[in-house]
Design a protein around this nucleic acid. Structure first.
Lengths: 339, 339
DNA sequence: CTGTTAGCGCCTTCAG
DNA sequence: CTGAAGGCGCTAACAG
């Protein structure tokens, strides 16, 4: 592969001029530009990004860490990230943590070894080691933004973009209560994940405010998956006193829950109302269509990427949390309780 | 950030020795290793991957191109790619083509500018320009593997891993025929995409073999999305002579189709049987559970990545197509035709 | 086993 | 507006 030297020689100019052709063409006389252009075409030259990045000390790559690929909700956030990244000249690297099995320092090391310029966390990653004082040194934190509300407590205080998870779960629970439900179960992922913790807090708040007993079998352990939604629901249905409504920590769990309820010969929402979280595209066409809390995924992605760019560019870092609006989408999986 | 020089000075060795510490530690006396190790800890040094990559001429990055993020089927392929990539020391960059709007040369340029070592194509990308003779030069093709069967014709002849799409659609169609269906519609994505073309070929083959008329409204245009599955189904239902079975080009379209059928007051499979493609995780819990052709996504991903590594390593390039097995998963969205 | 040395390809002063 | 020259941090011969 040809290098800048060859092009320079062929065009009868210096390598500096060829470099200028790519970076500050306006500085070159038009006739020079033409010469260089032809030499480039003749040689089929492409700038060696490796050398350029090395020289500039920048990769134009960011890492997005997420619990799992193929989750529709994360895909919408990714779309937002991507559109801004493209505009700003960044490419995206993906790290799938397989539901949180990758330690954070493995990711931050990619920053410290200059493989990426910044990091966006979609969902928690743990253990989140204190990279501020990495190896006992005062290395600076990598440019980092936490997206979505599922951040573990040690990630608090970092720049982030998310909905108000507590308020969202509170709203969802209140809607169920307003329909006359009293026995409301909360199907959560592992409570050790902050997303579930937050949503649980909102649920509890609403229940307490309405002076309702919090269902004892609330505490569940699992991932935010269809499979775990089904497993937990089966257990719930086998209890002597069955709930009349289910608040699920995400739509996948809700879809799994509805499936099990129907399998047990019960009806949604006739016997049990179900409400989810995220408004993934399958929610609208499920049977019955799922009532859920929608999150503005693309907006979250866009804002996160803007924030990250600001940090990378060394602008004023705001460690604030940008709160974006959630919305209760009422469909047909919820109905008044039959008493 | 400290460099190898600082570490060397502090440890009282040469930079080469520090380099060896990371790359061929077995060549160093243990006492030397210890000295270097301490110096590294003291300085908080990390290898500058930018410089290393530059020097080695390798990024250990591969690009995966896919039509859309958040498609469960692609996610399973990605998992396979990822597991092999991790074992081989590669990280993954993602290019989402938003259903095929990114020109291929934009991706191949990333290889020619040394930003990535190789490319995996999940699904077609077009226009696929002949990168072999890029700019009229005999640049070699970037290391490239085509995964999944949805490759456009100009990608034929490249190394690839896929199911036999024609056979798969043939099998699915035959199953419907064996159930007594005569009026079978094929809901495809845009036929300009090869995936649809292949599946259409298998469908036609089965229909012809059974001497059945090919439904005239077969030709459809759209993406492999829920939305387009719904749109096409609505149109189909409004026809005077409605089909009794639907073969859909993927599960998302099938899920959309079932929703519209039920919305129209008809039953699946009572009035219309539906069969999909891919066996995504939502297929099992749809109502009714969806009969579909399963593809071994992870296996496809793994094999693709292995193939790509071989090409990158300069081993014998096999331009052959690895065919992996598909499987008809019979659930409840298909039933004998009522005549 | 370890040190010396010479670049990799590019960009960026500094001169002119 | 353009050329000359140095060096980014690392690794890979080549010596010893």
């Amino acid at each position: 592969m040809s290098s800048i030297k060859e092009v320079a020689k062929r065009a009868g100019v210096s390598t500096a001029t060829v470099s200028r052709f790519f970076n500050t063409p306006e500085q070159l006389r038009e006739s020079t530009q033409e010469k260089v252009k032809q030499a480039i075409e003749q040689t089929g030259y492409s700038v060696n990004a490796l050398a350029r990045n090395f020289r500039r000390g920048k990769t134009n790559l960011i890492i997005v860490v997420l619990p799992a690929l193929g989750v529709p909700y994360f895909a919408s956030v990714m779309r937002g990230i991507e559109s801004v990244a493209k505009a700003k000249g960044y490419s995206i690297m993906i790290k799938d943590t397989q539901f949180n099995t990758v330690p954070f320092n493995q990711v931050s090391d990619m920053f410290f070894s200059r493989q990426a310029d910044g990091i966006i966390l979609l969902g928690s990653i743990s253990p989140y080691q204190d990279v501020v004082s990495r190896n006992g040194h005062t290395n600076s934190l990598p440019p980092l933004v936490v997206s979505c509300e599922n951040a573990s407590p040690d990630l608090a205080g970092l720049p982030s973009v998310r909905i108000d998870g507590i308020k969202a779960a509170f709203d969802a629970t209140n809607y169920l209560i307003s329909l006359g439900h009293r026995k409301i179960a909360f199907i959560s992922g592992s409570l050790s994940q902050a997303v579930s913790g937050e949503r649980e807090a909102g649920y509890s708040k609403a229940m307490k405010q309405a002076k309702l007993a919090i269902h004892e079998d609330l505490i569940t352990d699992g991932h935010l998956t269809i499979e775990d939604g089904r497993r937990i629901t089966r257990r719930l249905l086998n209890q002597p006193s069955r709930p009349t409504a289910l608040l699920c920590a995400n739509d996948e769990m809700a879809l799994g829950a509805m499936h099990e309820i129907k399998l047990a010969g019960l009806s949604v929402p006739g016997d049990i109302s179900v409400i989810g979280f995220d408004d993934i595209r399958y929610a609208e066409i499920s049977d019955p269509p799922l009532t859920t809390i929608a999150q503005p995924g693309e907006e979250i992605g866009e804002k996160s990427m803007y924030k990250l760019c600001n940090i990378i560019d060394g602008q004023a870092i705001d460690n604030k949390t940008d709160v974006v609006e959630h919305q209760l989408i009422i469909r047909s999986s919820t109905a008044p309780a039959v008493l």
